[in-house]
Design a protein around this nucleic acid. Structure first.
Ligand SMILES: [Zn+2]
Ligand SMILES: [Zn+2]
Ligand SMILES: [Zn+2]
Ligand SMILES: [Zn+2]
Lengths: 142, 142
DNA sequence: ACTTGACCTTATAGTTACTATAAGGTTTAG
DNA sequence: CTAAACCTTATAGTAACTATAAGGTCAAGT
């Protein structure tokens, strides 16, 4: 039986977040000690670990709740979880692609920026690159 | 001179978002027509394009506001922008790394999940993998 | 003239997953 | 006896929008 602070330390989830999970009913209300402090059982902690692990895999809290609901009903969530994973992988790969394109563009802009003279009247500053969206050779505009 | 809907179409920024930018003072209040409709000048549109472009480069609205403030004061934001870009690139690359690790883990879990039999009593379901965080060969637990 | 639909307006609340703050109660060590 | 290090609740803030409600305006068609 652990206090919220001990659970926090053991799981790496902040006490604020644990209370938040309880508030949105992702975690059940734990027992209380005589002083009204929360007291967590092993199964409470296990459930929190599950949530935390799934969050690290970037599952949405809503999906996690559904998985746990299946689990609670003793119904097999396996297929459901497999589907969520597949979908998750797709989303993540799209995001990686987006970010890589973004990074390339920024690196390009930065490189172009370095070739420019310091300019006070802002005839050639990097802002113009952002503004016009050109990231390549044609830095001779307006 | 364009209406908010026309500006939205030309820039790809929703009318809601344009009004939101105005509300947080990222964009100035535009002129109004007799019917109280917003009317945008070319320079208004240009400014919105700048914001949109910077957002696509994942600059925070706060950073964009600072850049525009520099611009308005006729001070050279170049060095500032260069710094923001450098920082932005670092953040993005970290995020890409995180997401790649995440994807690898998920792909692994999914692969392991596929090798498992359909199980109703949930002795071996994928939930357990998420719970325990093992993603490799040792699928013979409890 | 009238209605329908596509615009526009404001204000307010909801989203996601937390994090922070305020204002206070409890426990333990010095 | 008091200061710290816990715990409690309730409420508001974060980022960048998105959605909803409730209504005003305008052009086209019948
Ligand atoms: Zn399962
Ligand atoms: Zn510039
Ligand atoms: Zn500049
Ligand atoms: Zn399971």
């Amino acid at each position: 039986m652990l206090s919220i602070g001990e659970v926090s330390q053991q799981t790496g989830v902040s006490t604020q977040t644990i209370r938040y999970y309880e508030r949105i009913k992702l975690l059940p209300e734990p027992k209380r000690a005589g002083n009204n402090y929360r007291v967590y059982s092993d199964s409470d902690v296990e459930r929190l670990r599950f949530v935390n692990r799934a969050r690290q895999l970037d599952f949405a809290l809503e999906d996690i709740a559904e998985i746990l609901a299946f689990r609670y009903q003793n119904a097999p969530p396996c297929q459901y979880v497999m589907n969520v994973m597949t979908q998750q992988i797709t989303v993540i790969e799209e995001r990686i692609g987006d970010l890589q394109r973004l990074r390339d563009e920024l690196v390009n802009l930065h490189r172009v920026g370095l070739t420019m003279p310091e300019d006070i009247e802002m005839k050639q500053c990097v802002c113009h690159l952002i503004k016009t969206g050109q990231s390549n050779e044609d830095v001779n505009d307006e």
